[in-house]
Amino acid sequence: RERAMQSEAKSHTEHGTDSSPQGPGCSLRHFACEQNLLSRPDGSASFLQGDTSVLAGVYGPAEVKVSKEIFNKATLEVILRPKIGLPGVAEKSRERLIRNTCEAVVLGALHPRTSITIVLQVISDAGSLMACCLNAACMALVDAGVPMQALFCGVTCALDSDGTLVLDPTAKQEKEARAVLTFALDSVDQKLLMSTTKGLYSNAELQQCLAAAQAASQHVFRFYRESLQRRYSKS
């Protein structure tokens, strides 16, 4: 019981520090999403988290190059384009992480010998870019009507030098952070689909971040739900 009290006190102090002029750390920035804004791709979405913005376009299921054909499932391809210059190693590694996340949820077996291409364009980077890429990719897949067993979302956590947890950090917070952790979670039971981390953190901190990301993912999924509800409403 004492421990519970302590942690409660801790969380209170956390909230106390959070209400500093920087704004509460444990909150998500404002979200905005527009679907079906591009005419050429089968599905498209622009996702904004604060000032971070990513545009995603999805083609598929469509014809696949013979060299890339997989006989029992769809070939998933992710292309991430930076805003300035040509894509480099960092983009390639992110592409791979996003592809692996999508492969876990997309029901590719329903469309064998086809290709599903996700093109992501960074519009502006103001922190939590990876999470925004994942969210944009998911919304674009939904818009394209690609069958998926669950939705997914990305949540980024940052740990300060004093161990304070910041959800959906801005670029400045990410820079100052001791560790930055990005998780991809599925919508059914918030299971972890992908995690990528940078910096030093303890086992307990990892679990805390994961728990916080799961709490935050509820908000993101609610946002998904409401935005789709609006889209398929009659008004």
Binding site: S11, C26, F31, A212, A215, E226, R230
Partner: peptide, 16 residues
């Protein structure tokens, strides 16, 4: 109708 926004959402992380 395809666009949607959500204002800043506080996330309850007290039980983390």
């Amino acid at each position: 109708i395809t666009a949607f926004r959500m204002e800043k959402a506080p996330v309850d992380t007290s039980d983390v």
